[in-house]
Amino acid sequence: MDAADAPAALPGDALREGVVERLRADLGAGLIDSHLVPQTDLWVRVSTEAWADAAASLKAQGFDYFCFLSALDWMPSPYGKGEDDPTVEKEPLSTEVVPGVTGGDTRFQVFARVTDVRRHFGVTVKADVPDTLEMPSWIPSFAGANWHERETHEMFGITFAGHPDLRNLYLPGEFEGYPLRKDFPLLSRMIKPWPGIVDVEPMPDAAEEEDGTAEATPEEGGAA
């Protein structure tokens, strides 16, 4: 890769569709779904067993720049945002797992992004995480996945088979729990409601309001 190569023109659809075709040729049934936004971006979902092979295939196609690797927890948080009026009773929130782009069958998904620095576009790859929470590691293809997999492990609890040293990266050793899971509560918000909720008591002239006098209504905090 020498600096004398002129940068390629910005890619169109043909390039991204070509990537999908080549992945289908390499992985066969391992490629489950793809989502292409023309001129913008490409998402691809592969099966769990094909996760490491997808990395190798993409690297062979020229995507040798490793951007990042992380995980997604598709279950909505049962705690909400902690910004609701504490004097008003709220209904329990739905914890139904609804996956995003390119679908998914499990609560957790790992996703990663690699970029081709010569053709100037990248691909986001996703895969379902089975209930055993074990995934193959991307280190054989991209050495930089080391730290990313360690972070994903400590934040979600997903283990990566083949990782030489899966210990905590950010959190102190005695930390319990996996913070980025949606069922990990932020205790400060549970103990004390968000201080930005301005008006939790009714306005003193609530009686006049019913008569039709124009009164300013209390606003929920959160807008800019």
Partner: peptide, 22 residues
């Protein structure tokens, strides 16, 4: 070297200083 830099995801001036024009 450039290939090690790319596999670790080095970016910005670090990558350009290894010869990658991006």
């Amino acid at each position: 070297p450039a290939d090690v830099a790319k596999s670790y995801g080095l970016s910005g001036a670090n990558l350009r200083a290894s010869g990658v024009d991006w």
